[in-house]
Simulated assay, not measured.
Amino acid sequence: MSRHKRKGSTTEISSKMSQIEDRLETGLGEIRNQLGTAIATGTVQKNPDLLKQLTDKLNELENCIKSSLEEVKKEMHDFLDMQKKRFNENGVAFFGIQEGDTSVLPETMAKFITSKFNFEVTVADINYCYRMGASSTTSTSSRADRSKRPRPVAVFFVNRWLRDRVFYAKSVLKGSAVMLCELLCDSVLQLYKQAKLILGAKNVWTR
């Protein structure tokens, strides 16, 4: 069974970059050869339009390469965005968890989830977690603002099943100071923010 390359995959992007490199090398080689031959045979003096023709060909090659590079650049951006989205699939963000010792953050989050969600989550169930945003020592916000707004905690579970179990049970946090949200990639986050501005926060949701 043959395997098809996924559009925007690293293999396809690498292949396109090789094609661009070959096209550039071939195009420049042809121009160099034509110019070298013209100089050696004295054609430049006999045909003044030759330099203009070669310049036009060089400009055409330059525009072609630039266009191809822009296409690859967009595909690379989309690919990285897709990878980030997949990477975030096992993660959620907790807002309202009070600041504390980050060295024991996995233990803190495991205990919090177990106590609030009524099923056991251990440190072994958490791939890793971290505080999102600058710490209080580097933040430019006032001390009062920092005390009111603890940094969100991103928690990545070892599998999607556990992540979904936690996420879809988020109603247990209703009425508390803690809120649970999805981790969105940059493109989806920007779209979500724009939709909220247009339709209102109550009329927009991610899932």
Rank of each mutant, 00 (worst) to 15 (best):
R149C: 10
L28D: 00
M1G: 11
K46W: 01
S103Y: 12
V166I: 14
R165D: 04
G27F: 11
S136A: 13
V188W: 00
E25G: 02
E182G: 05
E12N: 05
I31K: 07
D164I: 05
T102D: 14
S103M: 14
T26A: 10
S142G: 14
L58T: 13
R149F: 08
C185S: 15
F119S: 01
G100H: 12
S139Q: 00
S171D: 11
I126V: 13
T11S: 05
W205P: 00
V172N: 08
L180Q: 03
H4W: 06
E70Q: 09
W161F: 10
D56T: 15
M76Y: 14
L184D: 07
R23E: 09
N33W: 07
S115M: 00
K74I: 10
F94S: 08
V166E: 02
T206Q: 00
L54Q: 10
S142L: 03
A201K: 15
V158H: 03
G200M: 12
L173V: 09
G175N: 10
L173C: 12
L28P: 00
V104Q: 13
T122I: 00
Q83M: 14
I20S: 02
I39L: 13
S2N: 07
T140L: 05
E99H: 10
V92M: 10
F117H: 04
G100D: 15
S176A: 00
